[in-house]
Each structure stands twice: as C-alpha cells, then as structure tokens.
Design a protein around this nucleic acid. Sequence first.
RNA 1: GCGGGUGUGGCGAAACCGGUAUACGCGCUAGGUUUAGGUCCUAGUGGGGCAACCCGUGGAGGUUCGAGUCCUCUCACCCGCACCA
Length: 842
Amino acid sequence: MSAPARILPERYDPAPVESKWQGVWEGAGAFAAAPLASDGASEPLPERPKAYVLEMLPYPSGDIHMGHVKNYTMGDVVAHQRRRSGAAVFHPMGYDSFGLPAENAAIRTGEPPATVTARNIASIREQMKSLGFAIAWNTEISTSDPEYYRWTQWLFLRFFERGLAERREAAVNWCPKDQTVLANEQVIDGHCERCGTPVELRQLTQWFLRITDYAQALLDDMSELVDWPERVLTMQRNWIGRSEGARVVFRLDDGSQEIPVFTTRPDTLFGATFFILAPEHPLLGHLVEGRPEEAAVREYAAAAARASAADRGDADRPKTGVFTGRHVVNPVNGEQIPVWVADYVLMDYGTGAIMAVPAHDARDFAFAQAHGLPVRRVIAGEGDDAGTPLEEAYTGPGTMVSSGFLDGLRSGEAIGAAAAWLSENGLGEATVGYRLRDWLISRQRYWGAPIPIVHCPEHGPVAVPDDQLPVLLPEVDDYAPKGRSPLASAEDFVRTTCPVCGGPAERETDTMDTFVDSSWYFLRYTAPHLTTAPFDRETADYWLPVDQYIGGVEHAVLHLLYARFFTKVLHDAGLLSAREPFARLFTQGMIYRDGAKMSKSKGNVVAPDEIVSRYGADTLRLYVLFMGPAADDMEWSDRGVEGQRRFIDRLWRLVGGLEPGAPVARPERDATDDPVALELVQKAEATIAKVTEDISERFSFHTAISAVQELVNLGTKCVSEGTAESPAAREALRYASQTAVSLLFPFAPHVTSELWEALGGEDLWRAPWPVADPAFLERESVTVVVQVNGKLRERMDVPVGTADAQMLALARALPKVAGEIEGRAVVREVVVPGRLVNLVVK
RNA sequence: GCGGGUGUGGCGAAACCGGUAUACGCGCUAGGUUUAGGUCCUAGUGGGGCAACCCGUGGAGGUUCGAGUCCUCUCACCCGCACCA
C-alpha cells in the first residue's frame, strides 16, 4: 500500500517559504501605494474607501527591536485586513534619520553621520523585509535626505513668514552632556530625556516655534480625537495646562512702573499681603538700583540662575527669597505691600510676578511663615469667620470677608465680580493662562536640518529664498559639539550674503530639533518624490487624516503634540484641509524581559533576527500579538514563542492532510444536515465574525488569534477522531481549513500563502476578506442554564425561540431541579431567552 | 499631593450588553506513538471533599432573582503630572 499523495512536505521549513513569498509580493508590487503625487501628472483618486495605516517611523539604529516588531506587525494586520476588505490601503515606511546616535558614532569613529545612517537604514530595511511587512516601499523616505529636509526647511520658512518662528532670548534648558539646548518636552524631571544628565538653565538666544499660539486650538480639537487613548489626551491636556484667571495690574510705589500679575484667584485680591518677582524678572534691576538691598537681591538672582532645572522645580525645597525694599500698590484697596524676589516664581509662566495670598495659597503660606510676613484671611469656610486662625492655607470655597466690595459673596461668584471690577476700572481683566511653552527648536548639533536663515548686520534674521533650498549640511572635520554648533566651524558655509541687500552676512549655524522632521513626514509619504512642493494638497487631502496611527505612549506630549501643531499651521496656511493628522491612535505596551525593558546594557535583549532564523517570521509575528492585550506591557516568554510555532505546525499538518484539489465554496446552510459538517462550518463562520471584529474594531489581536486556534483545533480533532468521513464533512473540513488559513494571513502571511496555494488558491494577499454567512451564526438549539436561587443546578438544550413558559416547564421537570424546589414555594421565575432560567424559592 | 490605569488558575490571559468564571496559549500530570531524546497524539489540570456538594475574580460592604462586570469604602502595584500663581 503506497502512502497517499501529500499536498505539502511533512514538516514546515519557514526560511524557503518566507523568501519565496516575499519575492512574490515584491514582484507583483502587491503593497505599493497609489495614488501618490509626483511631478507631472498625479494619479487619479480612487472611489473606494481609503485606509491610511501608519506606525511611528523608526529611528534607524542598526537593529530592529521587539517593540518595532510588535508595532509594525499590528499595523500590518490592520492594513492587510483593510486591503482584503476592499479599501485603498496606504501603509508606508520611512526613517527618522537625523539625530544624536549617528552623530555620536561619528564623533567616536570619524565616519560621517550620513555614511553611518545609510548603512543603518540598509540594515533595518532588510530586517523589516525579512518580517514580511506589507509596506509601500515605493514611498520610503529618510528625514536626513536633502530632498526631504529641503522641505522641512521650506516649511520652517512658512512658519517664519507667519511670525510663528522667532528668535528670542530666554532661560532655556541646556544639556551639558549633549552640549545642546532642549525643548521643555524633552526635559523629564529636570533631566535630559535622551541621556539623563541634569539639565541647566541658561539665558540664550534661540529659535522658537510659537506653539503657544495654538494652545487653545490644540485643546479644542481634542473633541475630534475620539479614538485616542484617554491617557494620551489627559497628558496633553495637563501639558497644555489651561487655567482661567485674571490679569491684575499692580503699580510700583513711586508710580514709575506697572507690574501685571496673572492669578487664577482674583477673588482673593484683598488677601494679598506681599508681592513676588521671579529672579529673572526684567524690572528687578530697576527696582533695586542704588538701594541698600541691591547687593543681596543681585546675589540671590545670580544664585537662582546657577541652580539646576531640577532644583528650581522641586516643590519640597524651603521657600527662599529676599526683600527688595520696594512696595507695590494693590489696585483694589490702595494698600502698599512689600515686593520680594523668590525663585519659586517662574519667569516663563504668567507674567513672572505674582501677588501672594498666604491665607489661600499653600506656597505663599509657606513663604509667609518662613519670612514672617502677615497672613490675612479673606475667605471664611464653613464655621469660620474673618478671625478664625489659619494653621495652613485654606484653598476651599467660602464666603468673602475683609474684602471690600466683595464681602458677603460666595468665593466662586467673587472671581467673576473681581474680574469685572478690574475691567471696569482699567486695572486688569479676565484672561487665560497656559502651562505650555513655545517649542525651542534650535540645536547646537551637526546632524539635523540647518535652519534656513541668514543673519544680516543690516536686516537681522532673513529667510533663505525658497529657490536656494536646501541649505545643505556642510562637510566638517569635527562633529563634536563645543557649546556651539559644529556648523559654525565651516567658514565657507557661514560666510554668505544677505538675500535682501547682498551685503556680507552669516548663516544661522544651529540645526533643527529632529521632532520638526517627524512633525510632517506623514504628509511627505503622499508625495515622496515631488520636487516642486513638500506635498500635493489634493493627494494629501485624499489620504489625510491617518486612519489608524500606532506607536508608543512616550510620544504623548512630544511627537504627537508637535504633529498636531504642524497640521494646524499647515491648515491655516491653506496648504491642507485636515486640522488633525491622526484620527485614531493606538498606543502599544512595551515588551519586558526579566521584569525590565530590553536594553543592551542590561543584556536582556531578544533579537528579532534570532527568533526569525530559529522559528520563522510568522511565529514571531504571531507571538508578539498573542502575548496579551496589545496596549499592555508584556513579559517576553521563550516558551510562548514555541507555542505559536506549534500552532503553525498544527495548521500545517491539518492542511497537509487534506486531499489535492481546488478551493471549495461555503456550503449552503439548507444543504448542510451532516452534524460534523454543520459544526465545522458554524465554527468557521463564527471565527470569521470574531476575527473581523477583533481586528477592525477592537484592536484585540490576541483573541483573534485564539479564535483561529479554536477553529484549527476543531479541525484537528475531527481528523484525529475520524469523524469527518462523509463527503459533506470532508468538504466542510476543507472549507474550515481554508477559512483558518485565510483569517490567519494578516498575522502569518508567509505560511498561510503557502498553505493557500497548496489548497489550490492564488494570491491570498488580495483574496477577498471572508464575510460570515449569518445563516450559520444562528443556532437551532442553545444550552440554557438552570439556576435555583441564582446557583447553577442544571443545563438543558432547548430549540432557539422556545417560549418562556415552555422553558420554565422544562426546567422544573429536570430531576435535580424538581428535587430542589419540592415542598418550597417558588416566589419568582426569571427567564432570559436563550440564556437561563432562574427559580427563586423560599 | 493631583490625574489616569491595573489587580481573575502555577504563568500570559478570556469572559465585549449584569446571565455557564477561567476560552486560547504556556507549564504540569498520566497514557500512547516513535524512541536515545525531543517532536507528535490522547486524557486531565482553580481550591476543598470519598461523595452529593461547598468555596472561589486584591479586601470589606451594598444594589439585584443573579455581580469578575454596577455603586460605596479600602489595600497593593504601575504610569503621567507636580512650586504653573
């Protein structure tokens, strides 16, 4: 007796299968994106629904890591499912290739950053291809490519024209290790986000993008971001930090100056007993000039300037300060109150000056205690009166006391009343403050896009004309930062002429924060090779906004905020219809090992390459999604990887055991009376519905995979038990196997393509996504639970649609139930059709 | 301190609308096939009990015929923010 013909080798060997299918897809241009805008004719816009599926672009260090694998696999699954469901899918890839790692490598080895970067990109691209990601490689971009950063510069100039890019002096965050300034968002707890070094504050002239102009719009348009994680929205909301209050103008004792303050508590104005200026306040010198307090005040301000950002921001530090010898006049009562300088008042929030109300502000209270300043209660809480002593600041609501025209009002009403009074008397008005600071984008580093500005002694900062872009990075001998940009040492680069007057001038030598590059890359993908503009409005309008964006939560107030800002500015500049770049956002959890983030220094890295060569790309893709909910942090398990490989092997054996032949159609429900066939097809249809919903609506990949596993397990069981012997059952088994292969394709595209081919199918990547036949989803009979007093007693199978009365009669007749209720009064009967019967007895 | 989140078998987890708690996978136990071992197949696997049964979703209350799910309080852990006037 000869062995039956096999449609597949006995054992699955991933390597040849993977390279075969990667070659097929590439040859067919299976995942190329269209339409794209390009020079000359743009491609026509399709009528089909579109799906722009995007994962945050990687920084090209040489090696892809597990976080990337998870990130891109998720996007891949979504993209495949949408494509096979008929959507025009856009799933591009690029590299955030400017930045410090390549530059630091260059400093160590002398190799130019461009060379290091090119090599790393080639390496990471190969690794991504080996995982079989369905990327539109025809759109690939690198932010360090002159053809890309040319347009980054072009966009900067649009900001400059609109007054949204400006150079000004400010106390800025300086990282002494990286030798460059940092944006506020890049300082975590007073430390450099990149290297962890404590950040210093320095008074420097730098380029800022005026993101604060968009603070309100960034808040308001969050209503469009319904599918963003609440956590990210909350972080952005906190970061923007809107607070309503009032501007109140105080006047210096000699009447020479007005000093406005911002307060959220204008109701407490009568409780202001002193006044504080930030050490950097520009009027401070004027106030103390030639006075006995001058030396002490200047010394205090100088010490504050030397303090690290972390120290300045530490709320637990004792409240220090120095009296200036001067007073200001409280506009509501004409009272003179002393002016102090203290470093808990920050120059870059509000006006850099505050009225201090120790009775109703914890910080002011601490300061008053430390320096023996008076405390005056102006709000009486429940059971208090004007004379009730204060052990600590009272920040709650109450009735206004000792407050002139506000007396007797509730504190909540007094806020508005005080603001109205200020406004009527020209002494202030209601206003809104934001915690958000302008985005500091200049960097004193080499490997970034040069800021396209020329400094003319006559005309100041002047835009480089558009037709002279890109301003190319000069070649330099030494990439090391020395407190100024390495570009400054390239004399031929620096020396230039003023675009306005033609006179001698110098180029700006700072480069842009790499977050500028990544604030618009999702637009460039739609026109990757366009030479006349950064993108084409019509094509960009077709694809934008990104339908599904996927990335790490660490960018909540960095990239995600900046990209939103850019999109709004481009909208206002008439370049784009979209106001928001990313309609839906999914933030994935991190992969840990041994309880810690994978890192080279900890030696706990699992290299994706090694897993691919050992188990295959499909196994890895399945595992990173099967681990658990995609949004949660997960612990890596080598055993878990093996489990997914076993699953693939099980599917391989199931399909391999089928007879050669063509794909079969789904049987008709009316023609399916074989019980095994019916069970198989019902399971297949239920799996289709579950997997489709899990991918497209729930982002629940692990349950989608487990559903396919159940289907495969059922098929395997039918084979091992020999129950699928009738022609109808054999056909149903084939149909169920086909369905499992088809549904698993987005997760494990290589092996399923091979199995699909063995089953006589072709081009699984574009085979229509299965749609469940509802006729099989409706059951004829259901298992109903019978409870007595809410406790499970029995189960029974009843036909669907059985009447409540009938269900009750059946339930009561069950021997176990009958025994339970015998001799007891049934006081209530609960029937949930198709689910349960509950008899309540006494 | 404020804000957000998470607690379910030995482990990762499922239960989406208040209705069979623990699907799927890992691990473990036993048996079988092959056998040098692994692979593979079958059965079992929340706890207690000989059993009928009882108990079980961090803890304590509550609502309900019925609670992992809703409400109140509480504990633990994780994340974000934190002198922002």
